[in-house]
Write a protein that binds this DNA or RNA. Structure first.
Lengths: 118, 118
DNA sequence: TCCTTAGTTCAAAAGTTATTGAACAATTGT
DNA sequence: ACAATTGTTCAATAACTTTTGAACTAAGGA
């Protein structure tokens, strides 16, 4: 089973911006970027909103072409579509992420986590 | 008379993205960028929508901190707040504009213009 | 002064997006 | 087979955004 994703050339700039223009989704993208390479499952983001609502936001991100969602067993593994976004809109993702990193207004993912010491 | 603008530090990333995530407003920003340095008045954008609606979209851009609107007589002169946006979100405006330039899905400003030949 | 030009405001309507809860589906572990 | 885990779908509602038209303001000519 695989979920529908737009092809790279179907990714629309205004749609990407609109989808990123939501604090919950921007927080998700920021967190995905901070763990880039590591596919995360939905439950990582349950701090942000209810399970149903999260499903909705993650679908928006996927349908806009911002994320890729792979079905693995009962989980969905979510990654940023950096390759396609960089190809389509060079520099955009990096500047959004850089700006989001310093954004204290965004909700934090993993706020209620047991602290892991160095 | 002067219109209310957010200060640079009041400009919110998710709000800027949300505001740019509308094709009409993105078209306005693209056009402003193509004429950067030249302050434009509202009537330039009447191709895009009705006068009232334009007033609404331009207010959104101004309130988000994307544009600066200066009142001069009966006109409003609109410019991009490049300095503040670049300071706040380095690279963001440039990558959005670069992506918007190649975006054929966006409505064109000045589509119904008398062609000026080289 | 009167008319035009440039743009705003207001309230209503139309449309869209976000949020919720209950019910569902699929996989995994026992 | 059963229960738990992981996530989706659906319909309803709430909340917001966009669009409209009519009425308005303020400045600039004639």
């Amino acid at each position: 089973m695989t979920l529908p994703h737009p092809t790279a050339d179907q990714i629309s700039l205004s749609n990407v911006l609109a989808v990123l223009g939501d604090p919950t989704r921007l927080a998700i993208v920021r967190y995905l970027a901070s763990k880039e390479g590591v596919p995360l499952n939905c439950s990582q983001f349950l701090d942000l909103c209810s399970k149903t609502n999260l499903s909705y936001h993650l679908a928006k991100l996927r349908e806009a072409g911002v994320t890729r969602t792979e079905v693995v067993g009962t989980s969905r593994l979510i990654t940023l579509r950096r390759d396609d976004l960089d190809a389509r809109f060079p520099g955009l993702l990096d500047s959004v992420i850089a700006a989001a990193v310093g954004d204290t207004a965004l909700p934090a993912v993993g706020a209620s986590e047991i602290e892991v010491r160095a």
